[in-house]
Amino acid sequence: MFIIKCPYCGERDHTEFSYGGEAHIVRPKQPTELSDDQWAEYLFMRKNIKGLQYERWNHSHGCRQWFNVARDTSNDKIHLIYKMGENPPK
């Protein structure tokens, strides 16, 4: 159980939000050129990190905006929140 600070609405309980999975997975530019291996990588393979993960959340019971979160999956502590389209922090 944790609090997420929506960049548009401020701090809310995480139950107001929907999880959108690993962030920065880019849809292939030319899907017709992809091999089955590359499709499997894109569709199914995940980092599933124990530690700092970049992920997407949606404020589904609020402003309905998407944004990115850097959260430590070993303790659910949120380190950074940044907007969609922005690059992950180094």
Binding site: E41, M45, R46, K47, N48, I49, K50, T73
Partner: peptide, 18 residues
């Protein structure tokens, strides 16, 4: 639940979410 952590040590990826 830690399968992906061990896969990472071996340098492969799995289609799992923990």
């Amino acid at each position: 639940g830690h399968s992906s952590v061990l896969a990472n040590m071996a340098g492969i990826r799995l289609p799992l979410e923990s």
